[in-house]
Computed example of a mutant assay.
Amino acid sequence: MYSTITAGVAGTGFIGPVHVEGLRRLGVRVKGISSATLELAEEARQQLNLEHAYPDFDAMLADDELNVIHLAVPNVLHYPMVKQVLAAGKHVMCEKPLAMTSEQGIELVELAKKSGLKAGVNYNLRFYPMNLEVKKRLEEGDAKIFSVVGGYQQDWLLYDTDYNWRVLADQGGALRAVSDIGTHWLDLVHFTTGLEVEAILADLTTVHKTRRRPKGEVSSFNNEVLRDEDLETIDITTDDCASILLKFKGGAKGQLFVTQVSAGHKNRLTYDIATSDAAYEFNSERPNELLIGRRDQASEFLLKDPALLQGLPAPFVNYPGGHNEGFPDTFKQCFRAFYDAILAGDAADDEHTLYANFEDGLRELVICDAIIKSDAEERWVYL
């Protein structure tokens, strides 16, 4: 059924091709791709075996065959490009964060509502089956949530010679580690628990006040080795790591540690949700496992198995037990939820989507504003 929809993807860096792969696995026709230059777009077109390389974004928007545009471009481009997509009458799936500021986010939420189009933010980690299982259990039970603690750890910016556009405030935003990966954790906690952040106490750290940037831009995670003479020193103001305390409405407490300078942790999101009858522990580097802690009986170790995951997770589990589903699968499943809403049209419940909608994207921008203010003023900030 998804073959009735045609999509285009803007962006040829790390994540753009991941979108293409996820869409194709779902059965969506991906007609073409655009990039900063026609040469980059054509190179990606050949590598991905797509039909068309667009000379620029405007040419992609002008293609009447495209129903949906996926934005996998630097953060600074999200706001203007989302506006263009909506004005062109096409559905949009935008990489996080939704925009650079909450003011921009508010505008995009209103534009999306007025357009009647489907608009999503790619918080794909919601769609690990075990996260959907946790959401289901918390919704179906009546346990009180006491606390949520966890973190998101990476090491790809450990050295001062590690560089990517994300470290620049004018390209990625005032926050970096928190915005880039910390908002994944925050969105996931809201999604699984339904808790709303009430107040923030944040401590941000820039480990490398300066970094040595290649004189020519590089892509994320490309392992390119450069000589000293190929580097130039630049000042850095964005966060390498952060410690954040959270107060949730209703009394639950939270702790989040985010870092992109923790050696050996390639992409490790963890949470431990403590409730009045059980605790739920998840680790994204072992995403097919869920530890369910008990006090008065043996704790459970649940492995992903469609025979054991009923209800909410069931449509988003495509392989038998023992056949692991991982990071690329979360994109496919996120897009499944989004494209189901497109096919449902007006019948879709745009206020309670499984995929992150623009309201969810705005929530993260508001939280990020509070984190910046809390760190600067060294105090609790209430939302």
Rank of each mutant, 00 (worst) to 15 (best):
P17L: 05
A62R: 15
I15E: 09
A36T: 13
M60I: 04
P55E: 15
L61F: 04
G32E: 02
K31T: 06
A36F: 08
L40T: 14
L48E: 06
G16P: 10
Y54P: 01
E43M: 08
L23P: 01
L40N: 13
E39I: 09
L23T: 09
G13E: 09
L61P: 12
G13A: 15
G27D: 04
F14P: 00
E43I: 10
S34E: 02
M60L: 14
E42K: 14
F14A: 07
G16C: 06
A53N: 11
Y54G: 01
P55I: 12
R25Y: 01
L61D: 02
D64C: 04
G11A: 05
F57P: 00
H52S: 06
D63E: 01
G11R: 05
T37K: 13
R29I: 10
Y54N: 10
R24V: 05
F57A: 00
R24T: 07
S34K: 14
G13T: 12
E39L: 07
G16D: 04
F14K: 10
T12V: 15
G11V: 06
K31D: 01
E39S: 09
P17H: 03
D56F: 00
L26G: 05
T37Y: 09
V18L: 08
E65C: 11
G13W: 08
L26T: 03
V30Y: 03
D64F: 04
A62G: 05
V18Q: 10
G16F: 02
N49S: 06
N49H: 00
E39P: 01
G32C: 06
T37W: 06
E42I: 09
E42Y: 07
G27C: 03
H52D: 01
L48T: 08
N49Q: 03
D64I: 08
L66F: 05
E21L: 02
L26E: 13
E65Y: 06
E65Q: 15
L23H: 02
A44T: 10
E43G: 02
I15T: 14
G32H: 09
K31F: 04
L48D: 06
Q46M: 08
H52Y: 13
E43K: 14
A62T: 12
A59K: 15
G11M: 05
D58M: 05
L40G: 07
Q46R: 12
L66D: 00
L48M: 14
E65F: 08
E42C: 11
E43H: 09
V28Y: 01
S34N: 07
E43T: 13
D63H: 11
K31Q: 11
R24N: 12
V18A: 08
H52F: 11
P55D: 14
A41P: 04
A36S: 14
A62P: 07
G27S: 03
R29C: 07
E39V: 11
E51D: 15
L61C: 08
V30C: 10
V20P: 00
S35F: 02
L38D: 10
D56I: 05
A44C: 11
